[in-house]
Design a protein around this nucleic acid. Structure first.
Lengths: 180, 180
DNA sequence: CCAGTTCTTGACCGCCCAGTCAAGTGACCG
DNA sequence: CGGTCACTTGACTGGGCGGTCAAGAACTGG
C-alpha cells in the first residue's frame, strides 16, 4: 500500500496500472487481487487510512488543551504538520475530491474532521470569543486556508511548515484587516 | 470544446475517451484531430480559456473601484460568482492541480490572478489598512477560502453564491475572532 | 462543369489495461 | 513421508484506448 500510494501520488490514479505496482514490488499480479478486490478498492483503503491517520494526529495535538480557540489553532497546526509529513497521502485526498467515484468516501471522512472543528468554534462563540457566524462555514473556511497554503507554500515552494502554519493561524484568527 | 468540458467535468479527464466525445457530438474522429493535436492539448485549451474568462470577469468587477480593500472584496465576489456559473470549468481547474502534466499551465494562470490580488493587498498595507504580513501569503489564503467554500457550499450544498460570498468576504477581512 | 482544396469519415493499428485462472510452491500436519 | 491448503505466479483474455489514414464529400474559383 505504501508503494501504491507513492505511484498514485506521482503519476495519478488512472495512469498508474496494477501491473506497474506489482512489478515495482517484485510480486505477481495474483497476490494483488488476493489482498484487494480491485484497483479502486485499494485506493479507497489508502484514502481511509490517510483520513484516519490525520484525525488521530489532530486529536493527539489537541488532547490536553482546554481553551477552544487554542484547540482550533492546534488543529490547524497539526493538519499542516501532517500534510508536510504525508505529501503523497495529501495529494491523493486532493485527487479523490475530483473523482465522483471517491467523492463520497472522501466527504464522509472530511465531515467528521470538520465536525470536530465545528464543536470548538461553537464553544468559542458561546464564550463570545468568536464572531457569531455559521460555525460550519467558519470551520470549512479554515480547512480551505490550511489546505491551500500547504499546497502552495509547503509543497510547491518548500517553505517550512511551521512558518506557514503561523501565517495560516494568524489569517484564520484575525483576517486581513489591521486589527485593534 | 463545450461538450468536452462537460464530459471531462462529469467523468474525469482520463475516463473520458476521445471516441466518446466525438460520438456525443455526432462527428468522426478525424475532425477532432483536425482541430486538436491531442486529447491533452484540448484539455490545455479548455483550461486556458477558463482562466482567461475568470480573469476577465474579475477585471470587469474591479474596473471602477478605487479603494484597494473594496477591490479585494469585489475580486472574491467575482470569482465566486464565476465559479457558480462555470462549475464544469472550475472542476477542471481543480483536477488540473492534481495532474503533473497540467500543473505547469495551471500555475502560470493562477500566478497571474494572484499577482492582481497581491497588488491590491500591498496598496492596502501601504495605507495601513491591512496587517503588515506577506501579501503573497494573504492573497493565496483568500484564494483558498473562496475556492473551498465554493466547492462545499455552492456546489455540494447548493447554497446561494451571494450569501456564501458574503461569508467568505467577512472571514477574509475579519477572521474568526470577535472583532473590535 | 471540372480541378483543387478543405474538411470529414470510421475502420483500423498497436498498445496497454484491469482482472482471471490453471499451474505451481512450500509450510505444516498427521 | 504424503496430503493438504494457504498463498503465489504470470501468461492470458477481452476490451478499450489514443491516434492514423485512405477514401471520399462538399465546397471553392476558374
Amino acid at each position: 500500500m505504501a508503494y501504491a500510494t507513492e505511484r498514485f501520488a506521482e503519476q495519478g490514479y488512472h495512469p498508474t496500472s496494477v501491473s506497474e505496482i506489482v512489478a515495482g514490488l517484485g510480486v505477481g499480479k495474483g497476490v494483488f487481487y488476493w489482498y484487494f478486490d480491485s484497483k479502486e478498492q485499494l485506493f479507497l483503503e489508502i484514502l481511509k487510512e490517510a483520513q484516519t491517520d490525520l484525525r488521530r494526529r489532530q486529536q493527539q495535538a489537541i488532547a490536553d488543551e482546554e481553551d477552544p480557540v487554542r484547540r482550533i489553532e492546534l488543529g490547524i497546526r497539526a493538519s499542516m504538520a501532517w500534510s508536510e509529513a504525508h505529501r503523497d497521502h495529501n495529494k491523493l485526498i486532493q485527487f479523490a475530491a475530483t473523482e465522483a467515484a471517491f467523492g463520497g468516501a472522501l466527504r464522509r471522512g472530511q465531515d467528521i474532521a470538520v465536525a470536530d472543528v465545528v464543536k470548538h468554534v461553537k464553544e468559542a462563540i458561546a464564550e463570545g470569543r468568536v464572531r457569531d457566524t455559521d460555525p460550519d462555514l467558519l470551520a470549512h473556511a479554515m480547512v480551505g486556508v490550511a489546505g491551500y497554503l500547504t499546497r502552495v507554500f509547503i509543497y510547491e515552494r518548500g517553505e517550512p511548515a511551521e512558518e506557514t502554519a503561523d501565517a495560516a493561524v494568524a489569517f484564520c484568527l484575525h483576517g486581513l484587516l489591521a486589527g485593534v
